[in-house]
């Protein structure tokens, strides 16, 4: 008599099984007929990734150290950031993780570039139209809360195991902050400034390029920073579907209980995360030097 209250009335087992099976079969046949096409569509990504990896692995390590030092100096003008960045990489190299680190960095760079290329225009569109915002917002919510393992499944079914599905998984995870913060940054631009640009006869494109984007840049930079951090966080999970780099040793350490191996590679990920973060933040701050000398 009370059993209908304690156990939730659910669809019958056979119905559920049939439902699952039909969705699975549907997707599988979709994969079989369009898999090659989709793989072909994403093959430029493969080229991009391999090019990045070859670039980073083929360049002599002293050159890489010099380039990183130069980037750090250019972005921050702070000796502390430069020394910290170089020291991090030197330690990583000394502990035998140079090649894995380069692979991870190339993956993160590719994912970040892709996220900017997709996220910036989408964020702009979202800021310009309330309708686009209403459609895109819930999709972003899903992308951010759906456990990443779940969307790994269809990606792997479609594209198999390797760099490209890994990259796609990383981009799905790292893209939302880029879109959200671009949208936010543009929406926060002072309407009086925009009214002035209108009054002088700016076209929509002039308004975007000369006022909205530059004024939203600090927020957009925060979005890029977030995207880099999230891409790094996905490295270990992506290694489960064959992405090479620092994630692989961590994965091995988990399954074999190699405590030190896990720790070293974990620290290497933390190290490059801090490195990316400091450099990109310092750059973002320098881009808005007009705010520093505030008059009062």
């Amino acid at each position: 008599m009370t059993s209908w209250l304690t156990s939730f009335p659910q669809l019958s087992d056979s119905l559920l099984r049939a439902l699952q099976r039909s969705i699975d079969n549907g997707f599988r046949s979709f994969t079989r007929s369009y898999g090659d096409l989709i793989e072909g569509f994403f093959s430029p990504l493969q080229t991009l990734l391999i090019w990045f990896e070859r670039l980073l692995l083929g360049t002599p390590w002293p050159v890489i150290l010099l380039v990183v030092a130069g980037l750090a100096w250019g972005a921050s003008r702070s000796l502390r950031v430069v020394i910290g960045s170089v020291l991090t990489l030197v330690l990583i190299g000394l502990f035998g993780m140079w090649a894995d680190t380069m692979k991870t960095i190339s993956m993160v760079l590719a994912a970040t570039l892709l996220s900017i290329a997709i996220g910036l225009p989408l964020g702009v569109l979202m800021a310009r139209s309330a309708r686009v915002q209403r459609v895109v917002s819930p999709i972003l919510d899903i992308m951010q809360t759906m456990p990443s393992f779940v969307y790994l499944i269809p990606v792997v079914m479609l594209l198999g195991i390797g760099r490209v599905p890994g990259l796609i998984a990383v981009v799905i995870y790292a893209l939302p902050p880029m879109i959200r913060l671009t949208n936010l940054g543009i929406r926060q631009v002072d309407p009086e400034v925009l009214e002035a640009t209108d009054a002088f006869g700016s076209s929509a494109w002039q308004k975007l390029v000369k006022a909205q984007l530059p004024l939203a840049l600090p927020t957009i930079m925060a979005g890029i920073n977030q995207t880099i951090m999230m891409a790094l966080a996905m490295v270990v999970i992506a290694s489960m579907i064959g992405v090479q780099g620092l994630g692989q040793p961590v994965l091995r350490a988990i399954s074999n209980q190699y405590f030190t191996l896990g720790l070293f590679n974990g620290f290497a990920i933390v190290g490059i995360a801090i490195l990316f973060d400091r450099i990109s933040q310092a750059w973002g701050k320098r881009l808005q030097k007009h705010r520093e000398a505030s008059h009062d």
Binding site: E192, T197, A199, G201, P214, L215, Q288, H290, R291
Partner: peptide, 21 residues
């Protein structure tokens, strides 16, 4: 747009300057 570019110019109460320029 052409009219605004060539026939009118405007000065605003809160200046409306581009802060990054």
């Amino acid at each position: 747009r052409e009219f605004r570019r060539h026939r009118t110019a405007m000065v605003f109460q809160k200046f409306g300057l581009l802060p990054h320029r």
